[in-house]
Structures are given as structure tokens and as C-alpha cells.
Simulated assay, not measured.
Amino acid sequence: MKIRRTYLSIIPRIFLSSHNHIRTFSVYSVRNIKEKCAKFHNKNPLVSNCFIYGGITGFTELTQQTVQLKLVPYWTDKELSSYDLASLARYTCLGLVVFAPVLHYWYRFLDRKYPSNTKIVVMKKVALDLIVLGIPLYAFFYAFMCGLEGNSFQQILKELEKKLLATLLAGAAFWVPAQTINFRFIQPSARILFISLCTFIEVNILSVLKKMDFDD
């Protein structure tokens, strides 16, 4: 009887010890993964950014399609009966080979050209980002996506004529405050994380605009 009581008293200790070991291992594993990711990003920032943006743009389109399928099955007149894998691939490709390299070198140029974060410098960066980068990048977004969809040059021009101005206005409304925060308060080393979160929101907006029919 005494042995049984001793055995039963040991069980909670064994369980608590195992739980502490598992928790310590989990914390160490997460910390180790974070350190390896940070090390890889520091050594290969362009490759890291490409994977991040490619993943974000692809995931954004996935969320759009999930909304269409599960929550609101009527964004447009076209019914979506299943996930459009081709569209997912197009948006992933957009982030991987277009947005990521362009934004990587663009922000590196701006930070080297204007290293300060004073109000005047921030205003210059925001204006340059919106005018010098924003207009051609949004135009290329529609041309690139329409080209991958197999549209003709005339169809691409029609798409730009219908949607580019609305996209620029929506982009300005979103990015002016976002980039003001970015250039004013975010350290260059943490810029990619902040921009990634903003990009998720923006690409959702672009995805909606791309699917909308402006003729109605």
C-alpha cells in the first residue's frame, strides 16, 4: 500500500517534468528557427524578400478566392465553383519575380539616398514612392496579369484605361499614411516585415479591383 502511494505521488512529478522539458524544447526550437531565418535574410535579403512577397501575394489571392467560395459567392457575375490554381500561380509569380525585386532595390536606394527620417525627408520619400514607383508599378501590375491571362494588347490597354486611375487613387489613400509610418518610425532592418503586412492589405485591394467590372 505504501509503495502504491509512493508510485502515485511520483506520477504528477513525472508529468510536470515532461511538460517543462517539452515547453523548453518548443521555446528553443522556435528561437532557433527565428535565428536561422534572420541569419538567412541577412545573408540573402533579395532571395528572402522574393519568397516573402511571393508567399504574400499568393496567400492574398487564396484569401480572395476563399471569400468568393465560402463567404460571399458573388464578387462578380462569374461564379467560382472551385479554387482557381492558375490565378494563384499568377499572383505568386507577380510577387516573386516583379514586386519583390523592384521593392527590394527601390527601398534600398531610398534609404541610401535619404538616410534621415526627418519630416521633410519622409515627405520626399513618400512622394517619390507614390509618383516614381507607384504609377509604373500599378500599370505593370495590370499589364502583367492580363498578359498571363492571355489577353491581347488592346485588351490590356482597355483594362488600364478602365482601372488604372481608380487603382492609383486607392493606392495613394492607402500608401501615403502607411509609408509615412514606414519611413518615419520603422527601422530599415524591420521594413520588410511592415511592408509585408501592408502588401497583404494592398494586394487584397488590387485583387478586388482586378476582378471588378467597371462597365456596370
Rank of each mutant, 00 (worst) to 15 (best):
208 V>G: 00
203 V>S: 12
117 N>V: 05
169 L>G: 05
110 L>K: 06
130 L>Y: 10
171 G>L: 03
136 P>S: 06
177 P>T: 06
164 L>E: 12
115 P>K: 06
41 H>N: 12
210 K>Q: 10
94 L>H: 13
117 N>K: 11
54 G>R: 03
207 S>E: 01
42 N>I: 05
205 I>T: 08
56 I>K: 05
182 N>K: 02
25 F>E: 11
52 I>M: 12
178 A>T: 15
38 A>K: 13
91 Y>V: 02
59 F>H: 02
72 V>P: 00
114 Y>R: 08
211 K>T: 11
198 C>A: 15
146 C>I: 01
160 L>D: 11
10 I>N: 05
17 S>R: 07
45 P>L: 04
14 I>Y: 08
191 R>D: 06
69 L>G: 00
44 N>E: 10
122 V>K: 02
83 Y>S: 01
15 F>S: 14
130 L>V: 11
5 R>Y: 12
209 L>R: 03
45 P>N: 03
48 S>K: 00
126 V>S: 06
146 C>G: 12
185 F>C: 13
102 V>D: 03
211 K>Q: 14
83 Y>E: 01
122 V>F: 01
51 F>P: 01
126 V>I: 09
22 I>V: 13
91 Y>N: 08
83 Y>M: 08
96 L>E: 02
31 R>S: 13
204 N>F: 13
8 L>N: 14
122 V>R: 01
63 T>K: 00
121 V>M: 07
26 S>Y: 10
195 I>W: 03
139 A>M: 14
50 C>W: 05
191 R>S: 15
205 I>G: 03
177 P>K: 06
162 K>D: 15
61 E>P: 00
24 T>R: 11
59 F>Q: 00
202 E>D: 10
169 L>C: 14
155 Q>W: 03
144 F>R: 05
79 E>Y: 07
44 N>V: 02
98 V>P: 03
76 T>L: 02
53 Y>A: 15
201 I>P: 05
215 D>L: 08
120 I>E: 14
116 S>K: 13
195 I>F: 07
190 A>T: 12
144 F>K: 05
19 H>D: 11
171 G>E: 02
176 V>F: 03
81 S>W: 02
172 A>N: 07
115 P>V: 09
157 L>P: 00
86 A>V: 08
26 S>Q: 11
212 M>R: 13
75 W>N: 12
58 G>H: 02
50 C>H: 04
186 I>C: 07
98 V>W: 14
123 M>S: 13
26 S>F: 08
103 L>C: 15
128 L>H: 11
86 A>K: 10
